[in-house]
């Protein structure tokens, strides 16, 4: 038996909106640690890892580890029916073939339940090694989204370079080139407006902008995004999910042959 009650149901709505276009079907894993998901896009270029820790739920009952295969587009359709202020409860029986999403309005005057069919998905869990990153950039998520959107109107790939000057996002296309440099800026009124660059050594990597743009659909989850880079390793683009966890997108770089 599984019963997870999330007071801030809008977090789950936002999580689904951020992954539904990247991944079609995925297993949600439920354990004492929390509610998690790890899945690749169909071309195995990107991987998404979500963790919502059990402590972040108002009520968290998971009698035994459970893996629930869901079509993320269908799950997003159901969660779209929850109000932004609604409390969302996820319920499932051990060995059952459905999951129920219950939506309660804050004043308890409207209660809805949506039952969705589960699916069998071959689970492919990847081991993600702990990496020492050459550079970690923390910046406003809206700024990062704006940069990815702007650059994708010029080119298909972005070169992200971190030096002691700052972080540079560059692209080139048929009509020309573009370079955007963001410098460290910690003298801001609000901490979420800061740009912080931790560099062990300079690093430069090339990525497909199409995927970066897809990751920025997680922008509503967090004011800040963290971009972790190491030579010839997938970049990690991380958005915190309130105080309860994270959504991390891993993107394989484009490498010289």
């Amino acid at each position: 038996m599984l019963e997870l009650r999330l007071v801030q149901g809008s977090l789950l709505k936002k999580v689904l909106e951020s992954v539904k276009d990247l991944v079609n079907d995925a297993n949600f894993d439920c354990s004492a640690t929390g509610f998690s998901l790890q899945a690749m896009d169909s071309s195995h270029v990107a991987l998404v890892a979500l963790l919502l820790r059990s402590e972040g739920f108002e009520h968290y009952r998971c009698d035994r580890n459970l893996s629930m295969g869901m079509n993320l587009n269908n799950m997003a359709k159901m969660l779209k029916c929850a109000g932004n202020d609604d409390i969302v409860t996820i319920k499932a029986d051990d060995g059952g073939d459905t999951v129920t999403f219950m939506f309660e309005s804050p004043t308890q005057d409207k209660i809805a339940d949506f039952e969705m069919k589960l699916m069998d998905i071959d689970s492919e869990h990847l081991g993600i090694p702990e990496a020492e990153f050459q550079a970690i950039v923390r910046m406003p998520s809206a700024e990062f989204a704006r940069i990815c959107k702007d650059l994708s109107s010029i080119g298909d790939t972005v070169v992200i370079s971190v030096t002691k000057e700052g972080v540079k996002f560059s692209t080139r296309g048929d009509i020309g080139t573009a370079n955007i440099v963001c410098r460290q800026n910690t003298t801001v009124d609000k901490p979420e407006d800061a740009t912080v660059i931790e560099m062990q050594e300079p690093v430069s990597l090339t990525f497909a902008l199409r995927y970066m743009n897809s990751f920025t659909k997680a922008t509503p989850l967090s004011n800040q995004v963290t971009i972790s880079l190491s030579s010839e390793l997938p970049v990690v683009v991380e958005y915190k999910v309130a105080e309860m966890g994270y959504i991390r997108f891993y993107l394989a770089p484009k490498l010289e042959e």
């Binding site: 690749m40 195995h44 270029v45 990107a46 991987l47 492919e124 869990h125 990847l126 081991g127 993600i128 090694p129 790939t157 090339t206 497909a208 390793l233 997938p234 891993y250 394989a252 770089p253 484009k254 490498l255 010289e256 042959e257």
Partner: peptide, 14 residues
Amino acid sequence: DPKQGNILSFFKRV
């Protein structure tokens, strides 16, 4: 042009 890498060449199945 650089070639698109694959996640499975970085992270192994467990």
